[in-house]
């Protein structure tokens, strides 16, 4: 059971690292999804270990959250692609200082 938690932690870490490492906006959204998968797995594993359905419920909630985030992320992606080079997120940094 602890192996599953380590897997969840790994997913979370990979997602976080992906966000930091990749410059392209799409990949950042992708790694966001991976990151959210971590806690989902953790909840399912915990629910299974305890044998009650609350873990499953939380999993569904996290899915909904992930979907909403990606939805908004993609629409932003479309808007930004018109006005900036979406492949390199670092160029979108007018607001600073």
């Amino acid at each position: 059971m602890t192996a599953l938690f380590w897997l969840a932690a790994a997913l979370f870490g990979i997602g976080l690292f992906g966000m930091m490492a990749r410059r392209s906006l799409l990949f950042q959204l992708l790694s966001m999804e991976v990151m959210l998968a971590g806690p989902a797995l953790a909840f399912v594993a915990a629910g299974a270990a305890r044998g009650d359905a609350q873990g499953q419920g939380m999993f569904v909630l996290i899915l909904v959250l992930a979907a909403a985030e990606v939805g908004i992320g993609l629409s932003l992606y479309l808007r930004l692609s018109r006005i900036a080079d979406v492949s390199d997120v670092d160029t979108i940094s007018d607001l600073k200082g």
Binding site: L16, M19, M20, R23, Q28, V89, D90, I92, S93, D94, L95, K96, G97
Partner: peptide
């Protein structure tokens, strides 16, 4: 001021 680079990736890095 410099810490406020304005790049999204730096924001996530700070969070991490």
């Amino acid at each position: 001021r410099r810490s406020q680079s304005g790049r999204a990736r730096d924001a996530v890095m700070a969070l991490a």
